[in-house]
Design a protein around this nucleic acid. Structure first.
Length: 902
RNA sequence: GCCGAGGUGGCGGAAUUGGCAGACGCGCAGGACUCAAAAUCCUGUAAUCUUUAUAGGUUGUGCGGGUUCAAGUCCCGCCCUCGGCACCA
């Protein structure tokens, strides 16, 4: 018998597929399209690792599955090749990054092919190819012309090791995302992209996407929308020779607490300090304080949260709501980059202000108190019927009881019915409602229309008591940040927080404002190996874009790649390149010497795949229309607030420019968990727990590698690579090979085999559809166990191979051809299952007595409830448990279970 | 602190969303083949108790309560692990 020679088989078919263009996507095909995407790799000198395998195999399996289901599938690949390692290699060895990149790409390509990846290589792109980055630059100029790229001097994140500026998104826990060095702040002239202009669109767009919740939430949090008000405080000064009036503007989400604002704080960078220099009597101290905060690193600020600050003596702010004078402080707990860089401090209702006020012995004035009392209602159907009636008769109103909150618990089965009821009730009042879990609905409001005390049920009463907040036990020395009733606030007393917010804002002529946490994207890097920013500085004309026909602005050769560390890129040293003509006036001009960040090329690569060789456009309209949006995008969670956010921004911009036809780039995003070493730790050389995919391919074959990777665990879960585990799938593949070599098992198959096959078709099809690859593998193993020693038909053999084909493309292709097929199994038609074959005529149902399993009975498919119950009660074994007892109740769940209650 | 995901045998993990917990695989134990070993094949494998055995009982999905004929799954209150954000007003 032939041995399963996977090395030979895999090599052979990889060549055949390439020769036949098996995975080339046809632009003109009449079939419905599917665009499957993986994050294209960075071709590093180390080659691709296990981390790449996870999404790539998933995408590959899914692509093959869709292709067999009749779709025209595009599964492209390319190289995200700008970046630091190539440059650092150049610094060390003096070899130009483009040379080492080409070499690394060749290696990585070998790897991907040896893994049996069904990529469409005809669409390969490379971000460092001038024909590619011409269009990266072109899109940048579009952004520039739309006013979304601007130059500004500011404090930015600076990586001292990589010697370049970083975007906010690239700072992880105060460290450089790439190298881990502690990030510093540095004042630099930088190019920014105005991603904040798209904050709302990025947020709204999320709602239209069928993405997993956790990704959406992470992007939402990153964008960080909050609603509040802008409020102006006039400044009064001691020195009367002042003609100009000054004011401080703050952003607050709690204008309802304005009466409780007892001081103000500005960030150390706030302009007011400079502006009112002459008015500040303790200027020297203030300047000293500002200087010390500037010397603090990000890390120190995070570490030491003890509040510090300094009063700005000589000036006061006037609280617009009551004209009281309050002191102004400078303190670094207020950030210059958020809101207006100044706050009104309400120590009674904000933890940070509270802490600061205690330290500096400032007034703490409470203006919000909790609801008088919280009533707990356990609502059942009859109570609700009663309410409904009273509402319709207008008897259910709310004048008598001010300042109450109620908490309502609802019986499970009423939730669906009652949710709209409460929503309706709340719509004309300042009520606050939240649902905690499915069966609980809480309504807080300033008034209660009815007081119904907790009724009969003792347990409910007990629970209700726990939730009551007795008024006299409230500790007024603590901060209260919850919802409640406004007091100590003049004419606004008695209002709910929500209501007071906008009434008070209106009263002081404040402005409703929406604030985002998101910052503009620092887009320039002081490094060599990136796309040159295609702009020219002209003394006369200012900043002039390079004319389109002169793109790309190619990277010049340099002798020294070292970053200068001065905030200039190494390009600045090449005078022949820097000095050029101004395209506008023809006078002398200087090229922008900063380069684009790594994220530039990857922000639009998925568009280029549709039309990679186009020299006139970044991609042809027709082809964009044909292929977009990406149907499924496989990738890691680590890019959620980096690449995934950036490319959505670019895409939404291109959509607004009418250059793409879909508002969003990726219809679905499937995240994956990381693969850890066998010890449960992150794979790393220093730990010595690195599993190398290539050695596994040599030892067990690509098919075993792929299948084991899928079998490790759920796609989205973090999993550990267990060295021994691969033996299981390796044995499985050997057994399949053996099964197909034997001719003895061919023949007429029985109905259990057929049933098992169809059950597996169902299971495998459904599970691939929802990316549950680990159970796909187990389903296939179960099938083999069931048919291994039985007679099977040729059709079953073919079906089995087809089900396996997406997972193990080489082995199945080999056996498929051994069966005499001429064309590829990967372009064959996916099997469908016959529901009548899946359902058995006879099956077992479990019989329980008082919830305990006591036996099983075999019943026919179409048995009635009565018949089943009889069978169960007459069963000898069951009788021993029911003997001498009365049967109270029998529960019958068709096809599953009978429970006899005695 | 806030947000998100999770906690099931010795291990990785299943469980159609309330219906036989532990599928499938690893490992382990016993057996077959072998002079022997490896490979392969067969059998067993949650814990615990009763029994010579067949068999049967009890407990069991992080902890404590609850709802239900029935809970890994739903509700309430905790604990722990991982991921993200964090002085964002």
């Amino acid at each position: 018998m032939k041995k399963y020679d996977f090395i030979k088989i895999e090599k052979h078919w990889q060549k055949e597929w390439e020769k036949n263009g098996t995975y080339v996507a046809d632009n003109k095909s009449k079939k419905e399209k599917k665009y499957i995407l993986i994050e294209f790799p960075y071709p590093s000198g180390e080659g691709l690792h296990m981390g790449h395998l996870r999404p790539y195999v998933a995408g590959d399996v899914y692509s093959r599955f869709l292709r067999m289901n009749g779709y025209e599938v595009m599964y492209p690949i390319g190289w995200d090749a700008f970046g630091l390692p190539a440059e650092n290699f150049a610094i060390k060895k003096g070899i130009h990054p483009s040379i080492s990149t080409v070499k690394n790409i060749t290696n990585a390509k070998e790897q991907l092919k040896s893994w049996g990846m069904g990529f469409d290589w005809s669409r390969e792109v490379n971000t460092t190819d001038p024909y590619y980055y011409k269009w990266t630059q072109w899109i940048f100029l579009k952004l520039f012309k739309a006013g979304l790229a601007y130059e500004a001097k500011g404090m930015i994140n600076w990586c001292p090791k990589d010697k370049t500026g970083l975007a906010n998104e690239e700072v992880v826990n105060g460290c450089c995302e790439r190298c881990g060095a502690t990030v510093e702040k540095k004042e630099l002239r930088q190019w920014y992209l105005k991603i904040t202009a798209y904050a709302e669109k990025l947020l709204q767009g999320l709602k239209t996407l069928a993405w997993e919740n956790k990704i959406k939430v992470q992007q939402e949090n990153w964008i960080g929308r909050s609603e509040g008000a802008l409020i102006r405080f006039q400044i009064s000064m001691n020195q009367s020779n002042q003609h100009e009036s000054a004011f401080l503007e703050v952003f607050t989400t709690r204008p309802d607490t304005l009466f409780g604002a007892t001081y103000m704080v500005v960030a150390p960078e706030h302009e007011i300090i400079l502006k009112l220099k002459s008015q500040i009597s303790n200027l020297k101290e203030v300047e000293e304080y500002v200087a010390t905060t500037k010397n603090k690193s990000e890390e120190e600020r995070i570490e030491n949260k003890e509040k510090t600050g300094m009063e700005l003596k000589g000036i006061k702010a006037i609280n617009p709501v009551n004209n009281e004078e309050i002191p102004i402080f400078v303190a670094d707990y207020v950030l210059s980059g958020y809101g207006t860089g100044a706050i009104m401090a309400v120590p009674a209702h904000d933890e940070r202000d509270f802490e600061f006020a205690k330290k500096f012995k400032l007034e703490i004035k409470s203006v919000i108190r909790p609801f008088k009392e919280t009533r707990v209602l356990f609502v059942n159907r009859s109570l609700i019927e009663n309410w409904k009636e009273r509402i319709s008769e207008k008897k259910l109103l709310y004048k008598d009881f001010e300042g109450w909150g109620i908490e309502i618990f609802i019986e499970d089965d009423l939730v669906k019915e009652l949710t709209p009821f409460f929503q309706d009730l709340m719509k004309d009042g300042p009520y606050y409602c939240s649902t905690r879990g499915a069966t609980k609905l809480i309504i807080y409001r300033d008034k209660v229309f009815d007081v119904i005390l907790v009724d009969g049920d003792e347990k409910a009463k007990e629970y209700g008591k726990k939730l009551l907040i007795p008024k006299n036990e409230l500790d007024w020395s603590l901060v209260y940040t919850e919802e409640g009733i406004v007091f100590n606030s003049g004419q606004f007393d008695g209002l709910s927080v929500e209501e007071a917010k906008w009434k008070i804002t209106e009263f002081v002529k404040g402005k409703k404002q929406i604030q985002y946490r998101l910052r503009d994207w620092v887009f320039s890097r002081q490094r060599y190996w990136g796309e040159p920013i295609p702009l020219i500085h002209c003394e006369k004309c200012g900043i002039v874009p390079v004319p389109e026909e002169e793109l790309p602005v190619t990277l010049p050769e340099v002798k020294k790649y070292e970053p200068t560390g001065t905030g200039e890129s190494p390009l600045a040293a090449i005078e022949s390149w820097v000095n050029t003509k101004c395209p506008k006036c023809g006078g002398p001009g200087k090229r922008e010497t900063n380069t684009m960040p790594q994220w530039a090329g990857s922000s639009w690569y998925y568009l280029r795949y549709t039309d990679p060789k186009n020299e006139k456009e970044f991609a042809g309209k027709e082809l964009l229309k044909r292929w977009l949006p990406v149907d499924v995008y496989f990738g890691g969670m680590e890019h959620t607030t980096l690449h995934l956010l950036y490319s959505r921004f670019w895409h939404e911009f291109l959509y607004d420019e009418k250059l793409v036809q879909t508002p969003e780039p990726y219809a679905r995003r499937i995240p994956h968990g990381i693969i850890l070493g066998a010890d449960g730790e992150k794979m790393s050389k220093s730990r010595g727990n690195v599993a190398n995919p290539d050695t596994i391919v040599k030892e067990f074959g690509a098919d075993a590698l792929r299948m084991y990777e899928l079998f490790l665990g759920p796609h989205e879960a973090t999993v550990s690579w267990n060295e021994r585990g691969i033996l299981g799938v390796s044995r499985f593949l050997e057994r399949i090979y053996k099964l197909f070599q034997s001719k003895e098992n061919e023949g007429e198959e029985d109905s259990t085999v057929r049933g098992a096959v169809h059950e597996t078709i169902k299971k495998v099809s459904e599970d691939i559809e929802v990316f549950k690859f680990n159970t796909v593998v187990s389903a296939l193993m179960i099938l083999l166990n069931q048919i291994e020693n039985k007679k099977i038909s040729r059709e079953t053999k073919e079906t089995f191979l087809k089900l396996l084909a997406p997972l193990t493309p080489h082995l199945t292709e080999e056996l498929w051809h051994e069966l005499g097929n001429e064309s590829s199994i990967h372009t064959s038609v996916w099997p469908t299952f016959d529901a009548t074959l899946v359902e058995k005529d006879l099956f077992m149902i479990v019989v329980q007595v008082n919830g305990k399993v006591r036996g099983q009975i075999e019943v026919a498919r179409d048995i009635t409830k009565e018949e089943a119950e009889h069978l169960a009660l007459d069963n000898e074994k069951i009788k021993t448990y029911t003997e001498g007892k009365t049967v109270k109740k029998v529960i019958y769940v068709p096809k599953k279970i009978i429970n006899i209650v005695v």
